[in-house]
Structure formats: C-alpha cells, structure tokens
C-alpha cells in the first residue's frame, strides 16, 4: 500500500467537499432532519403517562449511532459513484492505484464524513434536547467501532455491486444499509421480533450494538457477550465483503466492465 496514493484520493474528495455546498449539505441535512423529527417524537413520548424510562436516550442514541453506520457505508459507495459520475474511474485504474488503496482511501473518507456529521448531531442533541451522547462513557468506543466497520463491510459490497452492474445498481448506495435496519433492533429490542427474525438478528453485528446501547443506558453496563458477538461477526462480514469485492473486481476486469462503468 502506498500512503501517497491513498492521500491523493482523499485530497480529491476533500477538494470536492470544500467547493460543493450540495455535498456539504448532504452530510448535515439528513442527520439534522432526523434529529429534529426523532427528537420531538421522543419529547412527546416522554410526556405520555406511563412513558418508558430512558425513552429519549434510547431513541436519540439509536438515531445518532444508526447515522454513524449509514455514513460509514456511504463514505465508500457514494465516493465510488462520484468517480463514475465524473467519468474518472478509468483514469484511476490505469494508474498504479491498487483496489485495496482505493478502498482504504474511501474508508478514511468515511471516517471524515461520519465524524463531521456526528459532531453536528451530538452537539445539537445536547443543545436542543439536553441529550448527553457521552453518557455511555467508554462503551461508546466499541459501539462506534463496530458500526463503522459494519458500514464499511456493507459499503464494500455495495461498491462491488455498482462495479458489476453499473449505475443501475447505484440505488443500493442509499438503500442497502436499510435492509439491515429491521433486524438491527435500532429502535426496539430484539425480543419484540418474531422468533425467526430474532434468529437472523443474532447474526447482525448492529443488533448486538443496539442491544448493548440500551443496556448501558438502562443499567450502566453491557453484557460482554454482545460486544464479543459484534466484533466476531464484523470480522466475518469484513472478510466476506473483501473476498466478494476482489472476486467481483477480477470478474469486472475479465468482462471489460470497468470501461463501461467508468465512461
């Protein structure tokens, strides 16, 4: 891996964000709207007689953490689409750039994007709703790490599908993460799901993170089992996504799709 090539791609995307108000808005716009809608829903629910304890923290914490996962995935898939939209993909892959360097740059970019968005939402949640995101203390670190890594795994699979099927697959860049949402127990516990969905949720890293988040908020601790499951599953997800990406990349080179996607 050549650091300079990774930095070159990062530099290219940072230039883009420096100049494009629309792209900057994209980082802030949806998190802000989500925060306002979910925030006032939680205010309303908290005022109801017999309201669940910690409902505001559950929902706002979940919303912010879900956005981290979503931004992490988009950091990879939307960045690939940017190269396709600007007919720049072929320029990149006729250079010495390796596919692994491309992915590494996109991962670094996703950290920039999600950190920026999270900083805004966390601050606004505190200012508007007095919600302290850091109430989860050091548990936040494994939660965030697991969600970022899961977002990368989904982003890598999305990127592979876009390379294979071209722009007709670009809708996946916005939609694929949401396929995981119902079984990730983001806004409700796994226990409310029917048995067969609970079985699926056991193998979704995000479900363990959100279950853990609720435990921390309610009891100040988390069962280690959740964190271990999340890390182990994420290891498998990332390995699987990389194997799939490289397999697709080889196939794309054999079929000559890079030019068709990139032109």
């Amino acid at each position: 891996m050549a650091l300079s090539r990774i930095v070159a791609l990062l530099q290219r995307h940072l230039y883009l964000y420096k100049r494009s108000l629309a792209r900057l808005m994209e980082i802030f716009y949806w998190p802000l709207l989500d925060l306002l809608v979910w925030g006032y829903v939680t205010v309303y629910l908290a005022q109801m007689p017999g309201a669940l304890p910690f409902v505001a923290a559950f929902l706002l914490g979940a919303m912010i953490l879900w956005d981290i996962l979503y931004r992490s995935q988009q950091g990879i898939s939307i960045s690939l689409l940017e190269e396709i939209w600007s007919r720049n993909l072929l320029n990149l892959f006729v250079s010495p750039l390796r596919p692994g360097e491309f992915l590494a740059a996109m991962m670094a970019l996703s950290i920039f994007k999600l950190s920026t968005a999270a900083a805004v939402t966390v601050t606004l949640a505190w200012l508007i709703y007095s919600f302290d995101f850091f109430m989860m203390g050091l548990y936040l670190v494994p939660f965030v790490v697991n969600l970022v890594v899961l977002g990368w795994a989904i982003g890598i699979v999305t990127a592979a599908l876009i390379l294979r099927y071209g722009q007709k697959a670009e809708v996946l860049a916005w939609g694929l993460t949401f396929l995981f949402q119902p079984v990730s127990a983001v806004f409700y516990p796994v226990s409310v799901l029917p048995g067969w969905l609970q079985e699926i949720a056991r193998y979704i890293p995000a479900a363990h993170v959100f279950e853990g988040m609720r435990e921390v908020i309610a009891h100040g601790r988390v069962a280690e089992e959740h964190l271990l499951w999340a890390f182990a599953l994420n290891g498998a997800y990332v390995a699987g996504s990389l194997i799939y990406f490289y397999h697709v990349f080889r196939s794309v080179r054999e079929r000559g799709l890079l030019l068709r996607v990139g032109e």
Binding site: V7, R12, Y15, L16, R19, E82, S86, L92, G262
Partner: peptide, 26 residues
C-alpha cells in the same frame, strides 16, 4: 493514458486535478 471519452472531476480546479494525479503517480 488519455482518451476523449474519459474526463476529470468537474468540481475541482485544473490545478487541483493535476495535484491529485501528481500525488497518485508520486
């Protein structure tokens, strides 16, 4: 390589585009 059918990122300036590729080619 250069082709009439490939372009460069349109939101970057001419110099920025060349800076990016200069780094890519070290």
């Amino acid at each position: 390589f250069s082709s009439a059918y490939v372009s460069m990122p349109s939101s970057l300036t001419v110099r920025e585009n060349l800076q990016v590729f200069a780094r890519l080619y070290q």
